[in-house]
Amino acid sequence: MKILVPIKRVVDYNVRVRPTTDHTAVEISNAKMSMNPFDEIAVEEAIRLKEAGIASEVVVASFGVKQCQETIRTALAMGADRGIHVETDVELQPLSVAKLLKAIVDKENPGLVILGKQAIDDDANQTGQMLASLLNWGQGTFACGIKVESETVVVTREIDGGTQTLSLKLPAVITTDLRLNEPRYAKLPDIMKAKKKPLESFNPEDLSVDITPRLKLLEVTEPPKREGGVIVDDVAALLDKLRNEAKVI
């Protein structure tokens, strides 16, 4: 079984972003970029399924600017077999990404697509569900456990009340939550080897996908700042503040 893992290049999770001075975008021109952490978990899971003899090939795909190829190389260094890059400078929104992914799935025929449940930049949490919808496949979102069986995959999901286990007919789409696994670090020899792994590049027109954004970003602002707090000396002072100043207990 082939596994397709879509990955997104995002601002590193340690970077605190700000709006640009004209408030039309997020200032990311000099920010450190990394693979979306949830997608790293997806890559790790796919590689583990290959190591367990369940998957035969792990293909990673990333869409966007030229530098997405660096993110693909990172996944190849972790152990993925081959990469697909769809290059465009257009801002890609989840619906467009899902349509591009559907076109890749139609070419590659994977048995499973595993991807992060959300990207930590736009926090949309949509792409996996949209892809499953376009393909008319089952979806296992927010996965914390995956067990592949012959015709099905059993997915345990993190939900608001606890966890839920679903059985999905294969092929299926799975989105990863934080506790599915802990991704490995690529070793130096693997980073060198990854440079020689195959990486195909397309543009959206090759795939006949319309990627026109449907949402316009009108303004980006900072959230309201909290008034500076105070450090109190002891429990008595804290309770006094909570009772008499904040009046919350």
């Binding site: 601002v11 605190r16 972003v17 700000r18 709006p19 997020v26 930590i120 930049d121 736009d122 926090d123 949402l215 316009k216 970003l217 009108l218 303004e219 980006v220 602002t221 900072e222 959230p223």
Partner: peptide, 12 residues
């Protein structure tokens, strides 16, 4: 919110 609420986006 975008970016864990570090910025607030107005979208149309």
């Amino acid at each position: 919110p975008f970016y864990a609420g570090n910025v607030i986006a107005t979208v149309q």
